[in-house]
Design a binder for these strands. Structure first.
Lengths: 151, 151
DNA sequence: TCAAGCTTGATGCAATTGCATCTATCCGCT
DNA sequence: AGCGGATAGATGCAATTGCATCAAGCTTGA
């Protein structure tokens, strides 16, 4: 069983992807810290819960959406709850489960994070690539996703 | 002072970039773990040191190359040294510093990691995009880098 | 019905990361 | 020479993450 070797083009693209994504995240996290706001992971969850509306979400539904391990979700939700940003409700038809819902304070926090996060995205992506290039980039990345997105 | 808002195209591209990069890393880390190999970060350092040759590198030179904080480099090098993959040499003209050099065992480990890492890159990038698309992707990502790379 | 196995979510413990600070050395200046 | 500040690297402590496992509730099939 012989191992595959990547093409030089694949290696270059990979290296850039790794470096760029880490740089973008780091700058954004720095901006959040500088504003006294919580890390990006909090935003992801608050965003999903805000989109989900009053019905909320089950923790296991968050696992794939925010790409965290089960214990990661469990602990992140505990932190959010401790900060009053989400609330956990028992769910009637499954005694094991719970439904997690964003609170008004959580919505507010989401907005405040977005003010910084959105600006960071604009700075780091919007200002550097044209709308057309951004679409091309998104499309190429979509084909790397699992499952791939063709647009 | 009004905060900038990102364009929808920028947000989509950002979201894809975040998700894809995390997915790719996670799959690769899983593959390494499955082979009983150390994490990606070890490869990065071993790779830089291998490229640097016999002269080795100073720890502070690794900071920018592998995008780790100073204490991150310090501790990662300690782990690598504890595993006999690198060696630290005092440097003559600066009593504070040290030179870090990869050992034969380190080179070997690098090769073994690459067997898995390279296959993962081939699987996840090479097999999904054409050489032309990979070049386009690398070029677009290069413009997001700091400092940007125009090719 | 009820045991075996699966799913949901939490948690003890170890490893890693982040932050702040420390030590040691070096450099520039007076 | 010697003081003040900068630089190289390490480290104590707290927070986070990863791994393994647990408890509780559900579901299936004999």
């Amino acid at each position: 069983m012989t191992k595959k070797s990547p093409s030089p083009e694949a290696v270059t693209a990979w290296a850039r992807l790794m470096r760029v994504s880490r740089q973008l995240v780091e700058k954004t996290e720095d901006a959040l810290k500088a504003s006294g706001l919580p890390p990006l992971g909090w935003y992801d969850v608050l965003h999903e819960l805000a989109e989900a509306g009053e019905g909320g979400l089950r923790p296991f539904e968050l696992i794939d959406r925010v790409l965290l391990a089960q214990y990661g979700v469990s602990r992140l939700l505990a932190r959010l709850e401790a900060n009053g940003l989400v609330e956990k409700l028992p769910v009637s038809d499954d005694g094991r489960g719970q439904t997690v819902r964003i609170t008004p304070s959580g919505r507010d926090m989401r907005r405040r994070i977005w003010a910084v996060y959105g600006a960071s995205i604009a700075d780091q992506m919007g200002d550097r690539l044209s709308a057309q290039d951004l679409k091309t980039l998104a499309s190429l990345l979509g084909r790397l996703r699992d499952p791939p997105i063709s647009d």
